[in-house]
């Protein structure tokens, strides 16, 4: 069974790589099978690891009288069931109820937490090195880095500030912002190359060592 699995995996791997020559039925077969299997996998996992433990078990405990407090869970379960009204053109507007609750709760949680994690903390991180400069605990290189960081953050934010026209000094500040962004995107590109190549190496490793090992 293990060897058969390796052959199936190798066949599907080669089907997808056949796209490098040109689009063909083998590639399309693998592509569509991939979508189907992935959706099926997520469906099974969400049912067994989400729906059953979070909704079905408390519901069952409530109706069997095991845990009457669980009856309150019937409310969110009924709200969740409204997602199934998506099947009916007449009643599909009811889908808005669970979506509104999830989006509302999500937004309410996001506002204070995103504010603290991404605005306050990031602003603190930009300013704090200057306290260290004042205390005299930073080296010359670190002082340069701290100053560069403030310049970079201010210029990048200026580039994204569209409420005023970018003319005169603002234009130059935003141009410096673009330079910082280009360095940021360049480093992201360099790292992305590393990531994608690693995937290729892993597949070649599989074909040469695992699949090849079953042949030679």
């Amino acid at each position: 069974m293990e060897v058969f699995g390796i052959w199936v995996a190798a066949f599907l791997t080669l089907c997808i790589y056949s796209f490098l020559y040109r689009d063909n039925p083998f590639y399309r077969f693998a592509e569509y099978l991939f979508v189907g299997v992935s959706v099926g996998y997520v469906f099974v996992l969400t049912t067994h690891q989400g729906f059953i433990p979070l909704a079905w078990k408390p519901f069952w405990a409530a109706i069997t009288g095991e845990s009457l407090i669980g009856l309150i869970k019937l409310i969110p379960i009924c709200i969740g069931l409204l997602f199934f009204t998506r099947f009916s053109t007449q009643h599909q507007w009811l889908v808005r109820y669970p979506i509104a609750i999830l989006i509302g709760a999500g937004s309410g949680l996001a506002i204070p937490n995103v504010l603290r994690a991404n605005i306050f903390e990031q602003t603190r991180g930009t300013i704090e090195p200057f306290a260290a400069i004042h205390a005299g605990t930073l080296s010359a290189g670190e002082i340069f880095g701290a100053i560069l960081m403030v310049i970079g953050v201010v210029c990048t934010l200026t580039y994204f500030f569209f409420s005023i026209e970018h003319r005169g000094p603002i234009k130059w500040v935003s141009k410096v912002g673009i330079a910082f962004l280009m360095i940021g995107f360049g480093s992201a590109f360099g790292n992305t190359v590393m990531g994608r190549v690693a995937l290729l190496i892993q597949r070649v490793d599989f074909l040469l060592n695992d699949w090849g090992g079953t042949i030679f």
Binding site: E121, G125, G184, S187, A188, N191, T192, G195, R196, A198
Partner: peptide, 17 residues
């Protein structure tokens, strides 16, 4: 993290998050 998202992690490293 994967290569694609390395660069965006650095602001969080500097703050100690």
């Amino acid at each position: 993290v994967t290569g694609v998202i390395i660069s965006q992690m650095y602001p969080y490293l500097q703050t100690g998050q």
